[in-house]
Each structure stands twice: as structure tokens, then as C-alpha cells.
């Protein structure tokens, strides 16, 4: 199968959807001639024109709010927030408006809005351009949260997001934009709430999502050489959360490590652990459920510091060994 990048896969999904549904409009800062801060929308202005690919002033509240209103009035807007950190500027529109409009008006409105935003650290862009904020939104009923880890998933999940009748926060992984992978041509979609098993194993299960999935796979390969067989679960969407897959993996392996880049305290990992201990999987556990997550700190500028506060492959491998009672 042909390989394309994560960024290209996103562009392909959005472009294919825009070709087949002219109620989709695409709104954001510097998405036109510039092609977006990460080049995702390169060429889209030329294909779809300025009526559908709309550059905006630097006005995040207006961008998201405009998406909410346009969705309530019959369009299917896709809005881009240049860095997910800037969602904080538009927080009212995301949390109090988009996520509430259906419920508070008794189901009269749908808000088929997609908010695309790049997430994560690793670029040396420091505190205000590196956060992983998914937990804020997972904690907000009414909005779905998607965290694709591969180009193929990015395409299939974005299609589902665009076709969904609800607001969807589509958190793209900055460091994956240039990563290539096999992506089917043409139309397909991936349902929300279905985790993927990226590697099978029986000794220990790792539950992760987003760019950390790749590191979990690397760590699994490292410890495989030492005889530890790791099952790697990629959640793909955090809201809805595939609790069945988490419970199944915990029962199968008896040992679970949860990995995410976002800081640990108050993170999605806590919900994953709770899902396990709150289910019959509890009785299958051979060890405490562990977390390997970002430290509870803003992301620093200096590269060594930046690397030191988010999970690295070696640290994940070490945590796997620890869970399995091995010393390195």
C-alpha cells in the first residue's frame, strides 16, 4: 500500500469530505496560502477557494464560536486552532457553548463541528506551545476527543469526526505530522470508541494513545528481547473511551501500564486505572496498575529538560520490567 504522512492523511480526509459535501467549510488562522502552521492544508485554498477555506484574523474565540454558530445553522465546519494551547483562549466557546448547545436546548440543535488542533511537546516551543490538554475536554461531557496515532487512523478518524453530529476535538500530534505510514486510498472511516491492539502479548498490557503509542511499541520491542511479551493498546479516542478493551487487556495480562504524555495528575490515565479497578479485571491483577506519564510541570524550553519531563522509550521499558518483576 502507498505510504503518506500523517499531515497528508489529514489533508486527504478533509479534502475528500469537502469534495463530497459542500456544507463543509474550513476556518482558521493562516490555513489558506500559508497552508497552516504545520502545512496540513497546503493546496486546499487552490482547490476549494476562499469561500470554503477561510483565513481568519487572530481571534480564537470568534473562530470556534463561528464554528458553533455555523454548525447550529446547518453547516459542518472544520476549524483549525493553530496550537492546541490556544484553545485556552477560546475555552468558553468550546466548553460552555459547543459542548452544551444540544443538551441545554433540549436536543433541538446539533453541533457537527470539528476542532482540529496540534498537541504535544518535543519541538522546543516551550510552555505555551507544547501542552497535552486532552483531559480538560474528556472532563467536558458533550464533546468527543480523538487522538490518532498513525496516518491511517488520522484519515479514518477525521472522516468519522466530520460526519459525527457532535462537536469533536481532533487532537493531532505535532511530532507525527511528518511520519509516514500506509494509508488506504479512497473512502473509509474508523468508528469512535474502538481501541486498536497494536501488538499482542500476554505478560503485560500497555494502554496509551497519540504519539506515545509509538514509544510504547519501541519499549515493547526492547523488553521482548528479554522475554517479556507486551500487549499494546491504542485507545484512539478518549471520549468515547473503549472501556471494554481496557478491561479485556487487563484481564488477559494481569499487569497494566498506562502511558501518556500529558502530566499525570488529573490526567486521562487516572480514568483508565479507575476503569480497571472498578471492573472484574481487578480480580485478575497480579500487580498494581502503574502509570508512566508526563511530570506535573509546564513543558520547559531546554531540550534535555523537555525530554526529562515526558515519557521516553527507555523509561517505558523500565516501567514494563518493573511491573514484571525484572531488574534491568
Amino acid at each position: 500500500m502507498r505510504e503518506i504522512t500523517y499531515a497528508e492523511a489529514i489533508r486527504e480526509a478533509l479534502s475528500e469530505e469537502m469534495r463530497s459535501d459542500d456544507s463543509i467549510v474550513f476556518i482558521g488562522e493562516d490555513i489558506g496560502i500559508y497552508g497552516g502552521a504545520f502545512g496540513v492544508s497546503k493546496g486546499m485554498l487552490a482547490e476549494f477557494g476562499p469561500e470554503r477555506v477561510r483565513d481568519t484574523p487572530i481571534s480564537e474565540t470568534a473562530i470556534v464560536g463561528c464554528g458553533v454558530g455555523a454548525a447550529m445553522a446547518g453547516l459542518r465546519p472544520v476549524v483549525e486552532i493553530m496550537f492546541s494551547d490556544f484553545l485556552a483562549v477560546a475555552m468558553d466557546q468550546v466548553v460552555n457553548q459547543a459542548a452544551k448547545a444540544r443538551f441545554q436546548f433540549g436536543g433541538q440543535f446539533t453541533v457537527p463541528l470539528v476542532i482540529r488542533a496540534p498537541s504535544g511537546s518535543g519541538t522546543g516551543a516551550a510552555e505555551q506551545h507544547s501542552q497535552s490538554l486532552e483531559a480538560w475536554f474528556v472532563h467536558t461531557p458533550g464533546i468527543k476527543v480523538v487522538t490518532p496515532s498513525t496516518p491511517a487512523d488520522a484519515k479514518g478518524l477525521l472522516k468519522t469526526a466530520i460526519r459525527d453530529a457532535n462537536p469533536v476535538l481532533f487532537l493531532e500530534q505535532k511530532l507525527l505530522y511528518r511520519v509516514k505510514g500506509e494509508v488506504p486510498e479512497g473512502d473509509y472511516s474508523i468508528p469512535f470508541g474502538q481501541a486498536a491492539v497494536r501488538r499482542e502479548g500476554k505478560d503485560v498490557a500497555v494502554v496509551s494513545y497519540g504519539r506515545m503509542v509509538g514509544r510504547c511499541l519501541e519499549a515493547a520491542a526492547l523488553v521482548a528481547a528479554e522475554g517479556i511479551e507486551t500487549e499494546v493498546i491504542d485507545l484512539r479516542t478518549l471520549a468515547p473511551l473503549d472501556r471494554d478493551s481496557i478491561v479485556r487487556a487487563a484481564k488477559k495480562c494481569g499487569r497494566v501500564l498506562v502511558v501518556h504524555e500529558a502530566c499525570q495528575t488529573g490526567g486521562v490515565g487516572g480514568e483508565i486505572v479507575a476503569t480497571i479497578v472498578d471492573s472484574e479485571a481487578f480480580f485478575y491483577l497480579d500487580a498494581p496498575v502503574r502509570r508512566c506519564c508526563g511530570q506535573d510541570t509546564p513543558i520547559p524550553y531546554n531540550r534535555n529538560l523537555e525530554d526529562s519531563v515526558v515519557p521516553q522509550t527507555a523509561g517505558i521499558a523500565e516501567a514494563l520490567r518493573g511491573l514484571c518483576g525484572r531488574k534491568s
Binding site: G124, A126, Y301, N302
Partner: peptide, 10 residues
């Protein structure tokens, strides 16, 4: 100035 925490944007 910021002990390497902020970089030139901060």
C-alpha cells in the same frame, strides 16, 4: 534570563 526554561519567546 529564565534559566533555559522559557527560550527567546519568553
Amino acid at each position: 534570563y529564565c534559566h533555559g526554561r522559557g527560550g527567546c519567546m519568553h
